[in-house]
């Protein structure tokens, strides 16, 4: 059980003209028991951040604390962290049982005890029948569980996971998400989880840290990040389809940009039923996607500013077709305001 604290972490790869800043002055506190998600597009530096907590990379500047101990110069094995890799990093020539118990063997734990521990970890993850197999004989999902079991068996203070679900198919990913949340509850320890998948972030994390181009954009509970995105980047990165961003100039204030989520756009049928106090935008429908439980209307603005809009509507009669000119309306309470220059949220 531990808390992790990052203070002004910067990581620069290479030097001179080829220097590339992967992580840029990130400070983050992860309290005990938290399931913290590091979320961002690929190449944003989230994995580098995780690897610095693990001790696989050294920060160029800043400090990493685990339980208030500065661990910058502490070897990975002494940090009491376990890591699950995207590729699982299983030992291909060892059986599942040997893979799981290997960290215990290294610690000089007796044969009988480590067999029992491995057995227990395998049971937790439903790997009991596969203990004698080699990783090559397992499915992707089973391999992923072996990697988890190998982490669990050590009872580490902090679990680090680097996109552990990205090699699974969609259905399995959904199942495993729920299991990971369950596991987190049972193990009662600190999870630090890297992903580029906002669904994983929303469904699993107790808090989400959104990272873009090496910088921390926002930290907060998933719903909070969704409801009050701190920047245009966060607003558009979280939520599918992404939030519509409308130039403020359209509505009379050029210094702001307005954000409206697709589910908050309504078709203004001209009967005044949409209510007032918000705004309206005229657009031409480009495409209508019927998803069964809902309909996505993709449109582009009638100005020359390249405005693209997506609305999420119930599958009811009276929907427009491609080429129709429509008017979208939105209520004031659903409008997010961002600074036009910096992209930051305005209060």
């Amino acid at each position: 059980m531990a808390q992790v604290r990052l203070e002004h972490i910067t990581k620069v790869f290479g030097d001179g003209a080829e220097a590339a800043t992967a992580v840029d002055d990130v400070s983050l506190e992860i309290p005990d028991h938290e399931f913290m998600i590091l979320l961002g597009p690929s190449g944003c530096g989230k994995s580098t951040l995780l690897r610095m907590v693990a001790g696989l990379e050294d920060p160029t500047e800043g400090d990493v604390f685990i339980d208030d101990v500065r661990v910058n110069d502490v070897e990975p094995k002494l940090r009491d962290v376990a890591m699950v890799f995207q590729s699982y990093a299983l030992y291909p020539h060892k059986t599942v049982a040997r893979n799981i118990e290997f960290p215990l063997k290294v610690r000089g734990i007796g044969k009988a005890e480590r067999a029992a521990e491995a057995q227990r970890a395998a049971e937790v993850l439903g790997l009991g029948p596969y203990l004698g197999r080699k990783p090559g004989q397992l499915s992707g999902g089973q391999r992923q569980r072996v990697a988890l079991a190998r982490a669990i068996v050590r009872r580490p203070a902090v679990f680090l996971m680097d996109e552990p679900l990205s090699n699974l198919d969609a259905k399995l990913r959904g199942d495993t998400r729920a299991e990971l949340v369950d596991l987190h509850r049972r193990l009662d320890s600190t999870f630090l989880y890297v992903t580029h998948d906002q669904v994983e972030a929303m469904t699993m994390g107790t808090r989400v840290a959104v990272i873009n181009q090496g910088r921390l954009e926002q930290v907060g509970a998933p719903q909070e990040v969704y409801d009050r995105p701190a920047s245009v980047f966060v607003a558009q990165f979280i939520g599918t389809p992404p939030m519509n961003i409308i130039p403020g100039g359209l509505l009379g204030d050029g210094s702001v940009r307005l954000g409206v989520r697709p589910e908050h756009l309504r078709l203004d049928t001209g009967d005044g039923a949409t209510g007032a106090g918000g705004g309206r935008v005229q657009a031409t429908v480009r495409q209508v996607e019927h998803l069964g439980h809902e309909v996505l209307v993709l449109a582009h603005g009638n100005g020359d500013d390249g405005l693209a809009l997506t609305a999420r509507l119930p599958p009811e009669p009276g929907l427009p077709g491609a080429g129709d000119v429509v008017e979208f309306a939105f209520a004031d309470r659903h409008v997010h305001r961002f600074d036009a220059a910096s992209g930051e949220r305005l209060p």
Binding site: A54, G55, L56, E75, P76, K77, L78, V81, A82, M83, F85, Q86, S87, Y88, A89, Y91, F102, P103, V106, R107, R150, R154
Partner: peptide, 11 residues
């Protein structure tokens, strides 16, 4: 990753 996983496990 094999080597990294091992170094984290104290191998």
């Amino acid at each position: 990753e094999l080597h990294e996983a091992a170094s984290l496990d104290g191998v």
